[in-house]
Amino acid sequence: MAESKNAGRPLSPHLQIYRGGLTMMMSIVHRATGIALYAGTVLLVWWLSAAATSDEYFDFVQRVFGSWIGLIVLFGFTWSLVHHTIGGIRHMIWDLGAGMDIPSVERGAKLTLAASIIITVVLWIIGFGVMS
């Protein structure tokens, strides 16, 4: 068998070549938020099922979601939903052919991250304001 001239080297760019950047991390986070939304949908189905089952079971689920760990999970789910939605809008803008130059891509990544955090916090402030 013939000896490869690429012996000892990767055949395609790999982790040794790439250096992490914001846009790479945003791509990974976009995928992770998509996975988190699947898990959050299971929690939503649990809550709706509890509402349809009985008052006692619904109160139990409400207590679980109202605990400190439940609130952290719900906050994370809210952020995942907002972040994934904004990321989807960003991808739709790219599909239209806009914002594909490197400075626009970097600016869009920063804007997506900042907007998702701000919108999530505002939604929770509004939510707690409505509850009180």
Rank of each mutant, 00 (worst) to 15 (best):
P10A: 10
D59K: 13
V29E: 08
L111S: 06
T85W: 11
R90E: 07
Y57F: 15
R107K: 15
V61K: 08
R90I: 00
G97H: 07
M26Q: 08
A39E: 03
G88Y: 06
W94Y: 14
F65L: 10
V121D: 03
W46N: 03
L81T: 11
Y18K: 10
I69C: 00
G66E: 08
N6V: 11
L111C: 01
L123P: 03
V121I: 15
I35D: 02
I35M: 12
E56A: 15
V29F: 09
T120W: 08
H84Q: 07
M1T: 04
A115I: 03
F58R: 14
P103R: 12
F65R: 05
W124T: 01
S12V: 09
G88A: 06
D95N: 13
G108L: 05
L15S: 07
H14V: 00
G129E: 10
M131P: 00
G34I: 06
H83S: 13
V105N: 06
L37T: 04
D101Y: 03
W124G: 00
S104F: 06
V122F: 07
I89M: 12
G70S: 03
W94P: 00
I102N: 12
G76H: 05
M1Y: 06
I119A: 12
A50P: 03
L15A: 08
I126C: 04
M92F: 14
G129M: 13
H30R: 09
P10K: 04
H30C: 01
D95T: 05
R90C: 01
L81K: 02
Q62Y: 04
L81A: 13
D95K: 14
Y57I: 12
Q62C: 00
M131V: 06
L15M: 05
S116K: 04
L15R: 09
W94K: 09
G20K: 08
A115K: 03
I69K: 04
M25K: 04
S27K: 09
I69L: 12
L15T: 03
I119M: 09
S132K: 07
T41E: 02
W47Y: 15
A115S: 15
H84W: 15
V105K: 15
G87A: 15
L111Y: 05
G20P: 06
L123H: 04
V73H: 02
T23R: 14
F65K: 07
R9E: 12
G34R: 06
G20C: 03
R19D: 11
A109C: 09
W46M: 14
R31M: 12
F60W: 13
W46D: 05
I28L: 13
W46T: 13
E106P: 00
S12P: 00
S49H: 10
I17E: 14
S49K: 04
T41R: 01
M26T: 07
S54P: 05
Y38S: 01
W94E: 08
H91R: 11
A50F: 07
V42A: 15
